[in-house]
Amino acid sequence: MDRGKKLTNLYGNKNNNIYMDLKDIIRENALPYLPAKSLFRCSGVCRDWKLLISTPFFAHNQSNSFRSISGFFYQTQAGVPSFMSLDPMAYGVPDPSLEFLPEPVEIRCSSNGLLCCQGCTDYKAYYICNPVTKHWEKLPKPEADHGPDPAVVLAFEPSLLNFTADYKLICAFPSELDGFEFEIYSSGTRSWRISGEIYFSNRKLLPKSGIHVNGTAYWQTSLEIIAFDLSSERCQLLYKTVGSLGTKNGKLCMAHVHGRSQNLVVRMLSDVHSNTMQMHSAAELWKELPRIHLDVSPAAFSSSWYFYGHGGVEFIGGDVVLFRDGNMFYCYDMKKKASENLGQVDIDIKAGIVGYVNSLVDLQTVG
């Protein structure tokens, strides 16, 4: 009898989570993990959800919880920015052409919900914006000449400790000393600074090859990868393989498609110190993952563009791989092990494609 009474009292505890309403459970445990477009639709469910989604604290929580690649920004052949969504019902932005910015822009790079663009007038200023909220910042003029096609990398990692975006923009620009120098913009100081590090080489950086992974910026040349550590501000050279730079499981990777077999080949950075190992060392710089056969049309890898630089892969980030045949785009989800034809897109091939996360991340100032 006593045991039965204790059991009844236990289940009668109204503080237990099993007595939470379903809408409260979803609000606390599901909403922060949804993309921005889906959240705007959820704001119409009830007044409480609308108020919650509109708060800065929720935006901060969502930017830390949602990290999935949602689509890609690109430049059309007419030069207008546009957005290609992986799921138009779930992912999207209110103004894909970025007309909320004060001048026409070219898309340069992105990082965890923030987009870096460059103006087309005056001194071609850099803009950092969130296409969801239409908030933006215009960066001051750099000290150095970054050239007509700057090799910039945006470094932003959401943090639970910072309610506003703390980011850096790094540019590898040609040096008068026959090499590359590095200029860094910090949102904390709101200023540019040229690093004392110089990479001496007569090689050219591949267009739109820059990426940031775990505190290091990487760029490709025709034969190697330049790695610039943001903490020590030291440069290191890595031997490269065929393909595009990207991220997988939080590590740098390179990916390409073997045209004849249609196998996706992904190699992850294994040991950055293998470059300095003695000869015949067993240490390997790149570790190859099990190859994945892509169930797509053979024509997707038949064009001559496949052999130029990318090795068939336009983008790899997380579990998403994007490749194309001319203006026809295909996506492969390595987690779901499924491929999808995204259709034909009117794209400027020279402008490149930028992966994007549909985030509510906030900036320090509002445009």
Rank of each mutant, 00 (worst) to 15 (best):
A255M: 08
M277K: 04
K204D: 15
T189E: 04
L264D: 03
E288M: 15
E157S: 12
Y330Q: 09
S261F: 02
S359K: 09
S274D: 07
I69N: 10
D122V: 08
V265C: 15
K240Q: 09
G250V: 12
M84D: 08
Y332R: 02
E143T: 13
P104G: 05
S191K: 06
L237I: 13
A227V: 04
H310A: 11
M89W: 05
A283T: 10
S201W: 05
V80N: 06
I194S: 04
F329M: 06
M277F: 07
E183N: 11
P94K: 11
L161N: 07
N112C: 13
V45C: 10
S297C: 14
R193G: 02
H135L: 07
F323A: 01
S297A: 09
M254I: 10
F58L: 14
H258G: 01
R108Y: 06
D325C: 05
K134T: 03
K134W: 05
N9M: 12
M279R: 15
Q236N: 11
E157H: 08
V296R: 06
F40T: 09
I26F: 14
G309V: 00
N64P: 04
S231P: 00
A227K: 01
P88S: 12
E288C: 14
A59L: 05
E176N: 10
C42Q: 03
S85T: 03
S63F: 03
L154K: 05
N112E: 12
K337L: 11
L360I: 06
N9P: 00
P298T: 06
V105F: 08
T189C: 03
L245P: 02
